[in-house]
């Protein structure tokens, strides 16, 4: 009946507000780990097709239809000129001004996105604060889609879900911010390294908005692919391993004294390996424990079991250790000097 009187609160759920958290329509396969049962019967009548992917098997057409879309041209290249490098056409400087300007324009667009993210985070923080107040019931309807505002159970349940979701999003923002800071640091360090080298191709005009030049493309690089091709694959892998250790810290091997050890690599997922050492000696867990030897590495391949719920980036002990190692080193040096002085 169109003219039937009804509560306004019931009306609102039908006009679902996209700005509110909505926990009514979640996919249970994705977010509730709903089990998928295995059957043997053939069934194409009642296919599960939420995203429409099962009907999208048609190949897209390549926007070029001609048979001559790729042709090898017969060309006679000119001889390599013996002139100076600056005589070579298409110098970097040709592109510099235009690319610099376009980059600035693109950055403006990126900054709009950045601003949007910051605003959303502000809103989320405010919502979280409101939900953690004693009068959260008053506010939850402006944050989350509520079916029945008089059902306290629903309100409580949705409050928990909303807080969980907001915290997840704020964590996501924290991760983004961390990556942004790291990138800024990397850029800064790179610029510092470049300016330290005193490249003569640099001049004030070359410096672009983030402080480095677009001319840096051709600088000689000691880690270039060419130099790395001279190394064997094993040497190269060892080189990467030591680079990784330098950057992220050592691999930690935690002996469990039950024939197993936990190998915590700062980059790769942690693994259990079987160790031959079954002595009951208690060894303190230190961050500078030696790396597993080659024999154990072989065992990793045979017996290693990945622990799916442990994230490798959680293990920051080695980074702290690296931080403190300098202090300890200087302390040790002081101690050595004082002992030496006493001795003399």
């Amino acid at each position: 009946m169109p003219n039937e009187r009804k509560l306004r609160s019931k009306d609102e759920i039908r006009r679902s507000n996209p700005t509110l958290f909505n926990f009514e329509k979640i996919n249970k396969l994705l977010f509730r780990d709903q089990p998928i049962k295995v059957t043997s019967s053939l069934n194409f009548e009642n296919l599960y097709n939420e995203s429409g992917a099962s009907s999208s098997s048609q190949q897209p057409k390549v926007p070029t239809s001609k048979a001559n879309s790729v042709v090898i041209r017969e060309e006679l290249l000119p001889r390599k000129s013996k002139g100076k490098a600056r005589d070579v056409p298409l110098q970097d400087s040709n592109y510099e001004l235009f690319h610099k300007r376009m980059k600035k324009e693109e950055k403006k667009m990126t900054n709009i996105d950045r601003q949007r993210i910051l605003n959303e985070c502000d809103t989320l923080e405010t919502s979280l604060r409101l939900l953690e107040q004693h009068d959260w019931v008053k506010h939850i309807r402006s944050i989350t889609q509520i079916y029945d505002p008089h059902n306290y159970k629903e309100l409580e349940y949705k409050k928990v879900l909303t807080i969980y979701e907001i915290k997840r999003l704020l964590k996501k923002y924290a991760s983004w911010k961390k990556r942004e800071d790291q990138l800024m640091l990397d850029i800064k360090q790179y610029n510092h390294k470049i300016s330290h080298r005193g490249e003569n191709t640099f001049n004030a005009g070359d410096v672009v908005s983030n402080g480095h030049s677009i001319h840096n493309d051709l600088e000689p690089n000691s880690d270039s692919v060419e130099s790395e091709f001279s190394l064997s694959l094993d040497e190269l892998k060892n080189k990467r391993k030591s680079e990784r250790c330098q950057k992220y810290g050592q691999i930690i091997k935690l002996k469990l004294h039950n024939g197993l050890s936990l190998v915590i690599d700062p980059v790769f997922p942690p693994k259990f390996i079987q160790t031959l050492d079954t002595s009951t000696k208690t060894t303190p867990v230190t961050s500078n424990s030696p790396e597993p030897k080659d024999t154990s590495t072989e065992e990793v391949a045979k017996l290693g079991i990945e622990i799916p719920n442990i994230e490798p980036h959680n293990f920051t002990i080695s980074q702290n250790w690296k931080l403190h190692s300098k202090e300890w080193k200087s302390e040790r040096a002081k101690l050595r000097n004082s002992l030496h002085a006493k001795h003399n």
Binding site: I36, T39, S41, L42, N43
Partner: peptide, 9 residues
């Protein structure tokens, strides 16, 4: 509603 994985499919 249950969702099934069909071996025959």
């Amino acid at each position: 509603e249950n969702v099934y994985f069909s071996k025959a499919n």
